[in-house]
Design a protein around this nucleic acid. Structure first.
Lengths: 184, 184
DNA sequence: CAACTTGACTTAACACCGTTAAGTGGTCAA
DNA sequence: TTGACCACTTAACGGTGTTAAGTCAAGTTG
């Protein structure tokens, strides 16, 4: 069993493959063995690159959050920014099958020191006049609502009934708007 | 039809045992085998009482929601009711280990017809002046926020850092208050 | 050049998991 | 007494995350 010399597995490639696997088979179908098969390798090889499955999921979750932050357009006031952030986050959740479920189940890995990471996260709102503590609190609130909304939409009580009865997109907008207005 | 012999197991007893198991070992430790062992039975016996694990989890989730609804005190206006509902729901999630995670992962079973169930759910708010559609939308929004908050608290980005940096209870209150005020 | 180390994977195995099929015995109606 | 039926048992299937130990190419060093 001769092996190709140059390593063809690395974290980024594996995470991309994991997202592809997620799209195809959902979160429940995302197993280490299937991921390994997809990239042409045996399952234990993955443990060379990740300490365990939780780390992989954490990195995936981080990517979902990062994509949301990257997609927020510049804003003139913090209320506008918060609203845009909520919408971007929702789009980011929805961009992957079971995206919200993944983020609810995994602890996103964070790059670097928590304190400096927090600073970076809070920066857009701090620039617009909020102090850091309040900036983080506002984001926590919006993240919670958005994460909860997508979870609720997928699994909440009476979801089948509600699906016929209400416009999920519009109601999310209503809720997000209420939240941001109420925070002012 | 033969009168049933004294059944060793029944749904209610099993659900209670499942909650006890949840408290001890968390959601990941709640397996059919362990639950069976706890009630002194072999694992496949559970499948006489539940079609599968999802049904069991769904019934548990239903109980968590039901406890929340039952705990909402009477209110004079719908804003007050909504706020109290949010607080009650949060307490209900927090009353069980991994309560929010369970509710995010399971589809709560609903008793009876969806339409009549929806009517019952909406009733408190309808009494206070909202039409049913808006009543359900408001509840969906509050449930989402609360569910998301508890998920976020358990798993969100920088949770360790944030735990030192902010008062989760107070911030939840801020968010809930903003949400309810914004809905008016 | 030979020996040693290291990186990146392999095979084998462990201890679980949810779930199904088939068997078993006690309790009832006829 | 017979037979149905409830509620459970044993056995097994195919899957899971994960660890231990082995393997072999490439790079480093004596």
């Amino acid at each position: 069993m001769a092996r190709p010399a140059p390593a063809l597995l690395d974290r980024d490639r594996l995470i991309a493959a994991a997202f592809a696997q997620l799209e195809e088979d959902g979160l429940d179908g995302l197993s280490m063995r299937r991921l390994a098969t997809r990239v042409g390798v045996q399952a234990p090889a993955l443990y060379w690159h990740f300490s365990d499955k939780a780390e992989l999921l954490g990195l995936m979750a981080r990517e979902i959050y990062a994509a949301a932050y990257a997609a927020v357009p510049p804003a003139d006031d913090w209320q506008t920014w918060l609203g845009q952030f909520g919408r971007a986050l929702r789009r980011s959740f929805a961009a992957h099958r079971d995206g919200a479920r993944l983020c609810a189940a995994a602890s996103p890995a964070l790059s670097g020191e928590p304190a400096s990471h927090a600073e970076g996260i809070a920066a857009p709102l701090v620039t617009l006049g909020l102090d850091q503590k309040r900036a983080l609190a506002c984001q926590a609130v919006v993240i919670s609502f958005t994460l909860g909304w997508e979870s609720f939409k997928a699994n909440g009580p009476m979801r089948e009934f509600l699906r016929q009865m209400m416009d999920f997109d519009a109601t999310f907008e209503t809720g997000l708007d209420a939240l941001v207005r109420g925070l002012a």
